[in-house]
C-alpha cells in the first residue's frame, strides 16, 4: 500500500503551479494532452510524460522565464518561447525536441557551465547536474576565466550553507522566500555578471531577516543552497582546495 502512494507522488516537478479551469487540449510532440486552462506548456508536457528541461522553473513557484532552457517551438508562431511562461491554447501543436531547440539549449547550458566549478560536476545529483547530463552538455568552449569560484561560502546558518560558486542566479530562492514564506529576506544584488544572491542588506544568512524555513534550500536547483547535514565533516570549497 505504501509503495503505491510513493509511486503516486514520486515527486514529479510539473514546472509551474497547477491551475483550475476548463480543460484545454493540445499536442506535445504529437501526443495529445488535456490540462486546465491557464496551465503552462511546461506543465502540459510534464503531464504528457515528456518533461522539458528547465532550471528556473519549479511547480511551487510562479514561472519567471529567466533561464532560457525550456524553449519550445509552436506551430504557426515565430521564435522559441519559454514553455514555462507560455499558457496553453486549444489545438496548439508544440515541439519540444527539435535539432534547433537542442542547439539553443546547448548554447545556454554551456554558458551556465562556464561559471560552474568543474571539479563539482562529477558525482553531483542536483537538478542542474541532471539537466546538463540529460542534455549531454559536459564541456563548454569558453575559457572560463570569468567566474565566481572564489566567492566566499556563507556557512553562518547552522542548518544550510550558501556556496555562490554553484549559484546560477535563477532567483528560485528569492521567489521562494518572497512568495512562499513571505520573509522577503533574499534578493539579487548587482547587474549582469555581478548579479548575486544576497540575504537582506548583503548580510550573512544568520544575521539577515531569514527565518530559516528552508524554502530557498528546497527551491535551489544547483545545491548552491544546501543542507549541511548532507556533508560529512566540514564543507570544503572544491576550488579553494585546488588553490
Amino acid at each position: 500500500m505504501w509503495n503505491e502512494l510513493r509511486n503516486l507522488t514520486d515527486d514529479i516537478d510539473y514546472g509551474t503551479p497547477p491551475r483550475d479551469g476548463p480543460m484545454v487540449t493540445l499536442e506535445i510532440d504529437g501526443e495529445t494532452v488535456s490540462v486546465p486552462h491557464g496551465s503552462s506548456i511546461m506543465l502540459a508536457a510534464a503531464s504528457a510524460g515528456r518533461p522539458i528541461p528547465k532550471l528556473c522553473a519549479t511547480d511551487m513557484l510562479e514561472p519567471f522565464g529567466s533561464c532560457r532552457v525550456c524553449l519550445v517551438e509552436i506551430e504557426g508562431r515565430g521564435g522559441y518561447p519559454a514553455s514555462c511562461t507560455t499558457p496553453v491554447i486549444d489545438g496548439m501543436k508544440v515541439r519540444t525536441q527539435t535539432e534547433t531547440l537542442k542547439k539553443l539549449r546547448k548554447g545556454v547550458l554551456e554558458l551556465y557551465l562556464s561559471d560552474f566549478p568543474e571539479s563539482e560536476l562529477v558525482g553531483g545529483w542536483s537538478e542542474f547536474h541532471q539537466t546538463i547530463i540529460g542534455e549531454g552538455v559536459t564541456t563548454h568552449p569558453f575559457d572560463g576565466s570569468y567566474n565566481h569560484f572564489q566567492a566566499p561560502i556563507d556557512a553562518s546558518n547552522p542548518y544550510f550553507l550558501f556556496d555562490p560558486a554553484k549559484c546560477i542566479v535563477c532567483s528560485r530562492c528569492v521567489r521562494a522566500c518572497n512568495d512562499i514564506q513571505g520573509a522577503f529576506a533574499i534578493t539579487i544584488a548587482g547587474r549582469g555578471f555581478e548579479s548575486k544572491v544576497v540575504a537582506s542588506q548583503d548580510q550573512s544568512f544568520f544575521e539577515s531577516e531569514c527565518v530559516s524555513c528552508g524554502a530557498c534550500v528546497q527551491a535551489c536547483p544547483s545545491h548552491a543552497l544546501v543542507e549541511k547535514s548532507l556533508f560529512e565533516g566540514d564543507y570544503v570549497h572544491a576550488e579553494s582546495v585546488k588553490a
Partner: peptide, 13 residues
C-alpha cells in the same frame, strides 16, 4: 568532497 551525499531512502511522515 564538494558534492553533498545523496540520501538513499525516503519515508513520508
Amino acid at each position: 568532497m564538494p558534492n553533498p551525499l545523496k540520501p538513499e531512502k525516503s519515508i513520508v511522515t
